[in-house]
Amino acid sequence: MTQLPTSTEKKLGLVIDLDTCVGCHACVISCKGWNTNEYGAPLSDMDAYGGDPSGTFLNRVHTFEAKQEGCASQTIHFPKSCLHCEDAPCVPVCPTGASYKREEDGIVLVNEDKCMGCGLCAWACPYGARELDEMAGVMKKCTLCVDRIYNENLPEEDRIPSCVRTCPAGARHFGDFADPESNVSKLVAERGGMDLMPEQGTKPVNKYLPPRPKADVNGTQAPALEAQSEEITGFLGWLDRTLEKI
């Protein structure tokens, strides 16, 4: 049903640490790999070895630069996948009932057996978190690795999203935001976790941790050293000192 639940028992989601992310794109590849082999239709590529390759991804890493007048710029790597919004605008627009938000844990999913590939849900998402797979013709999106996190066939340490498990920098964290004592809730409280495009009113579950203030980003570069001359001796030294006095 495309009616959003009034509240969900758990609020599962990710915290993404913009301070820690090194922009290696490992999460992009591990997400693509896991979701090509598991849940639903594989994530296809078009013209993969040709001149104009493109493909379906559920997680993409952008790189931004922020710069204040007169200061050095900062580079911020910015992973983006579905934010599993509380007021997900992508769900109620769906005409077929394929899109839904789960009452038990808040995960937003697409039932591919009902999706007709109209693309309206992708239009409704402000974050570009939904992509229509060109080959399968159905809508793909981050599943929060619903087929890993409850999967008892996996060793316990693997029962977290593939992107979180893979990240070599530890920039992605998975947990329950409904529980104030959870790892993710604490991170958000400590580090000032923020919403993306709050003005869109989507109430994202996923939160982003802003880069920590850099020690010297406001002083620009270190001050230039004064030119130092070695003590000059001999005739030239005498000349130098004499000229100084004139």
Partner: peptide, 23 residues
């Protein structure tokens, strides 16, 4: 507002996630 990075100054895209097109 899209990146939440406004406090750090003027934001611009340095690199797209992929060099090619996407949906």
């Amino acid at each position: 507002s899209a990146t939440g990075l406004g406090d750090l100054g003027k934001v611009r895209l340095l690199e797209k996630p992929h060099s090619g097109e996407n949906y």
